[in-house]
């Protein structure tokens, strides 16, 4: 099929969406906080290396560790959702596939965040 649309029509497309800055800013906020939080998470994980089960549950019941892990899960849940959304938008152009992948992305990020948080809370309060 020949495309008879003018170049002006093509360049204007559907117009400006009026957003994008929110995601951009949230990605920057979660990356600055993420650098701090990942340092905390790595400290918690490396402290657990070589420890036996009781020591590990003890460590993860420490309020500071709980706070770091919960904040990290929330932070990364947001960051990874936006990041993967950008990747999908970059390479996937079929509208149905794109919509399905965007939904799956939000779902996966939410499951990771909630499952991780549930486990942390169980260890801390019911361990």
């Amino acid at each position: 099929m020949r495309d008879f649309r003018t170049s002006t029509a093509l360049a204007r497309g559907l117009g400006a969406a009026g957003n994008g800055t929110r995601d951009f800013w949230h990605q920057r906020v979660t990356s600055v906080l993420g650098v701090l939080l990942i340092a905390g998470v790595l400290i918690v994980i490396s402290t657990s290396v070589g420890a036996d089960y009781d020591e590990v549950t003890n460590l993860l019941s420490n309020p500071l560790a709980v706070i770091v892990l919960l904040l990290a899960l929330l932070n990364f849940c947001i960051h990874m959702r936006i990041g993967m959304q950008v990747v999908i938008e970059d390479y996937v152009h079929g509208p149905v596939t794109k919509a399905l992948l965007l939904i799956a992305n939000t779902g996966f990020s939410a499951v990771i965040g909630v499952a991780g948080a549930a486990a942390v809370l169980k260890i801390a309060f019911a361990g």
Binding site: A16, A17, G18, N19, G20, T21, D23, F24, V86, E89, D90
Partner: peptide, 14 residues
């Protein structure tokens, strides 16, 4: 800025 506020027009820059 309104013209540029768009995930594709501007924010495809990585």
């Amino acid at each position: 800025l309104d013209t540029l506020e768009d995930p594709f027009r501007l924010y495809r820059c990585h």
